[in-house]
């Protein structure tokens, strides 16, 4: 039983080392990085910020992992966040009760995902093209809903999703954690994990094996849309307003990056939701570090690009058996010197 666990940990090594390294650099840039205190009954500190700010991308990455594992990609999640935020805000302003607002918003996210899924599974559009449609149109739809302005709301219930806390833990972190646990449980306790990997690796062979790959793809994209809506609610609640122009802008790329950093191949197949979440945390730790470092903002993107290159190179080094090579080299040398 301990065998597979050890290999999983070894596989996660490059990502874990990267995270440790980035956190250490953050500590160098800002010695108070690991300080955590309670502020108004809520945990407060840079480390909490990393998780709290990272929560929307973690949530997106959960859905995106399933999509990418099926050999697809969903470019529309950022736009779906904007749409769902816009719906949540306008419905709240119009006076609908909170449960209705949340259900309607998540429902719209689900519908957006279904739309993508239908295009991919039943019309055989390439995922990148199919989801590009909603990526472009979605933001327009969000702007129509908000009529071009930021729709501000003051409903404490909705705001709670963004800035509230439970037992000191900010809500976005709790929601992301809950989603992670549920998603991992569903994927590994049911056959979905195996079946998703199967259609991602070889869809034709999966069809021959009697798998309903169309329906499965539909569900995967719908779930991804659902995740995007959840993330959309959180970021709207966080700023108490729906900003159709900027909500979720470029976050689809962060989500894809998180999945890739987590080690799931863009060519589909083997995936790990937990590793994608780790990827999202790595990205956010880097962003927070850059903000804390005090570098002029002109360097933000260059720094980010550099770190990502290092991570991806380390990963390909590791998957190419680099660690084993190093271990063998150092191992024998070590023994010789003794």
């Amino acid at each position: 039983m301990s065998g597979p666990r050890v290999t999983a940990l070894t596989k996660a090594m490059p990502q874990l080392l990267t995270l440790v390294l980035i956190l250490f650099l953050n500590y160098l840039a800002f010695p108070g990085f690991f300080d955590i205190r309670l502020q108004d009954g809520r945990l407060f500190g840079s480390l909490i910020d990393v998780l709290n700010r990272g929560a929307p991308v973690i949530i997106l990455a959960v859905g995106m992992t399933a999509v990418i594992a099926s050999r697809g990609v969903d470019l529309s999640v950022g736009a779906v966040m904007a749409v769902s935020g816009a719906i949540a805000a306008t419905m709240t302003v119009a006076g609908y009760p909170l449960p209705i607002v949340i259900l309607a918003t998540l429902g719209v996210g689900l519908l957006c995902g279904l739309w993508n899924g239908i295009l991919v599974a039943y019309f055989d559009l390439q995922p990148i093209v199919a989801t590009l449609i909603l990526m472009v149109a979605g933001r327009g739809i969000a702007q129509l809903i908000t009529e071009g302005s930021i729709v501000t709301f003051n409903e404490p219930g909705l705001i709670f999703f963004g800035t509230g806390s439970f037992a000191g833990v900010p809500m976005p972190i709790l929601i992301a954690l809950l989603l992670l646990i549920v998603a991992i449980a569903v994927v590994r306790r049911t056959a979905l994990g195996l079946l998703i990997e199967s259609i991602g690796i070889n869809r034709s062979a999966s069809n021959y094996a009697g798998l309903n790959s169309k329906l499965l793809l539909l569900v995967i994209y719908a779930f991804c849309g659902f995740c995007a809506a959840l993330a959309g609610i959180i970021i709207a609640a966080d700023i108490r307003g729906a900003d159709a122009n900027n909500a979720g802008l470029w976050l689809e790329l962060d989500a894809i990056l998180a999945v890739v950093v987590g080690g799931t191949s863009l060519f589909g197949g083997r995936f790990s939701i937990l590793m994608s979440a780790l990827g999202a945390v790595i990205i956010q730790a880097m962003n927070t570090g850059i903000l804390l470092s005090g570098f002029p903002p002109e360097y933000n993107l260059i720094l980010k690009a550099l770190v990502i290159i290092v991570i991806l190179l380390a990963q390909s080094f590791s998957s190419a058996g680099g660690w084993a090579f190093v271990k063998a080299e150092f191992g024998t040398k070590g023994r010789k010197s003794q």
């Binding site: 056959a191 195996l194 079946l195 990997e197 199967s198 690796i201 070889n202 034709s204 062979a205 999966s206 021959y208 094996a209 009697g210 798998l211 309903n212 197949g269 083997r270």
Partner: peptide, 19 residues
């Protein structure tokens, strides 16, 4: 149309029954 290359022998054998 047959094998799912990256999946294990175990998973390939179980696939149709699981589906």
């Amino acid at each position: 149309d047959g094998i799912i290359g990256d999946l294990s022998v175990r998973e390939n054998i179980c696939l149709a029954l699981q589906a």
